[in-house]
Write a protein that binds this DNA or RNA. Structure first.
Length: 489
RNA sequence: GCCCCCAUCGUCUAGAGGCCUAGGACACCACCCUUUCACGGUGGUGACGGGGAUUCGAAUUCCCCUGGGGGUACCA
């Protein structure tokens, strides 16, 4: 046994899985979930989670997307053990860096009679397809280039035709056991000889995946069910190569509420979009895990670590699931509320930077965030929730204006002016107490009205944080100023 | 058209022949708590797509239909 083999030799039992995004867009929710399941499966088994970039379609791939994909995965906490950036024993992990390898294997398949050059033009192929449609039959490539003679090939070459390489699909009933879907069966005669190398010398997806998964010694392929129909093709290539066939597991798709594919028109589809809007990555991961997987103990809010412990691939549902925001929002709120104020403030900072933060100390800013966090479901809502704390004056909405224009408002506010001088602004308890006395101190005016009036004067709205907290944070100067302003002074 | 996958409350799902008068979570409704909005608590509305078959017994097994999804590329 050579050194190289020893180094690369693996224990039969080692679990190796991968996520193989193609950088033709930002990390999609569906891909993110597939990545999550792969990650969970690997970590649960003490195996390896590898990242591979599938950029064989150079036209559609771009650097910015690669960065977005890496960043999103990291934000979700799905750190890979091997990948383009950190390397590993089976690199390169970027397909565009392996074009020679694919060529080599394609040639091997030709030499051994499993593949052949095909010189058919697009027009010829189109014609075959049209005929099939007219005859209401399924289109299958005729295979007419299978037995091309050398002289025919040279003739085509001289015409300037660049061949593709097609795989000779054997005709048989192919069965395999899917870890999620169960026993699956296909008639490969219906598939025809498919292209493995394009005329520009780059591999097609179905070929590149097999070569990579084989070389990277993947033990399990966990992916979306949109790949089910590719599986027989891939297995056929494994067989032709004499390679070990990995186990397959196909997860249902994530659909939009209208039951169509989740796309831009449904709003956010990229993980980064969600994070941008103020969904906490850990909440997002938790939610996405619940799309198709159920915790064994019924406890739905779980950290990544806890999910790993409880994860099993058998528990994944075989059906599609619809991405609804309700539960995500609820869950995000749960996570926001459970975050320590300091941490929450740090994360909320980018949503409040439009205000003059120098009006307050760092501690006060934390108090503000703590005061408004309760009803928040998405971080971006903080921008509005916090508005009335900043600036001297406050802008009143219609409801607040109505309250302030009511006949009893003047009475209440005049007295409130007095009250404002009695507050000990650093003593929250004292404020609560004084406020309690104050709201009951009016003959014929409901406590509720008293509070609403004061709230309207101070915040310009009827809804918001706890009034005593607001008063404490605002401080004497602003409180007095705003009450006076409301009185028209 | 052809091939494949899927099918329990609005949504995510529990359920692997009797434990199911189908359980939980979100959403929704009501009540309680409360200075507002909320948070929290309690309770409620709400589903096995249809038809056959197997069985003493079916949400659970089988078949058909229907519905939804995916694939059918020199995209991945």
């Amino acid at each position: 046994m050579s050194y190289k083999q020893t180094k690369k030799g693996l224990k039969m039992s080692e679990v190796r899985v991968r996520i193989a995004p193609s950088p033709s867009g930002n990390l999609h929710v569906g891909t993110a979930r597939t990545a999550l399941f792969n990650y969970l499966f690997a970590k649960k088994a003490g195996g390896k989670f590898v990242l591979r970039v599938e950029d064989t379609d150079l036209e559609r791939s771009n650097e910015a997307y690669i960065k977005n994909i890496f960043d999103s995965l990291k934000a979700m906490g799905l750190n890979w053990d091997e990948g383009p950036d950190i390397g590993g024993p089976f690199g390169p992990y970027t397909q565009s860096e392996k074009f020679e390898t694919y060529k080599k294997y394609a040639q091997k398949l030709i030499d051994e009679g499993y593949a052949y050059e095909c010189y058919c033009t697009q027009e010829e192929l189109e014609e075959e397809k049209q005929t099939a449609i007219n005859e209401k039959k399924a289109y299958i490539y005729s295979g007419k280039c299978r037995e091309l003679t050398e002289s025919q090939k040279t003739k085509y070459k001289r015409e300037g035709r660049k061949p593709v390489i097609r795989f000779k699909m054997p005709s048989k009933i192919m069965k395999f056991k899917d870890l999620i879907k169960g026993e699956l069966e296909f008639n490969t005669a219906l598939m025809g000889d498919f292209v493995i190398m394009k005329s520009n010398g780059t591999p097609t997806y179905n070929f590149a995946v097999v070569i990579d998964d084989m070389q990277m010694q993947m033990s399990h392929i966990i992916r979306g069910e949109d790949h089910i129909s590719n599986t027989p093709k891939q297995i056929a290539i494994y067989e032709a190569l004499g390679a070990k066939i990995p186990e397959f597991a196909h997860v249902g798709m994530i659909l939009a509420p209208d039951r169509t594919k989740l796309s831009k028109r449904h709003g956010a589809t990229a993980v980064s979009d969600f994070i941008e809007q103020g969904y906490l990555p850990e909440a997002f991961v938790n939610f996405v895990a619940l799309l198709g997987w159920t915790p064994s103990d019924g406890v739905e809010i779980k950290s990544l670590e806890e999910i790993i412990k409880d994860f099993s691939i058998e528990a994944i549902s075989p059906s599609n699931s619809i991405f609804e925001f309700d539960k995500l929002n609820w869950m995000n709120g749960q996570y926001i509320r459970s975050l320590p104020n300091e941490e929450l403030t740090k994360r909320a900072l980018k949503y409040i930077e439009k205000y003059d933060l120098t009006e307050y100390t760092k501690e006060k800013i934390e108090e503000i965030i703590a005061a408004v966090k309760e009803p928040i479901t998405v971080l971006s809502e903080i921008t509005d929730a916090v508005e009335y704390f900043f600036g001297e004056d406050v802008e009143c909405n219609v409801e607040a204006l109505d309250i302030l224009n009511a006949s009893e408002a003047k009475t209440i506010l005049s007295k409130a002016l007095n009250l404002a001088n009695q507050f000990d602004y650093n003593n929250h308890e004292q404020i609560i107490e004084k406020l309690g006395e104050f709201r009951k101190s009016f003959e014929g005016i409901k406590p509720k009205t008293v509070m609403w009036t004061l709230r309207s004067a101070l915040t310009g709205r009827l809804k918001g944080a706890d009034l005593s907290s607001i008063i404490s944070i605002l401080g004497k100067e602003k409180v007095l100023h705003r009450i006076k302003k409301a009185l028209g002074e």
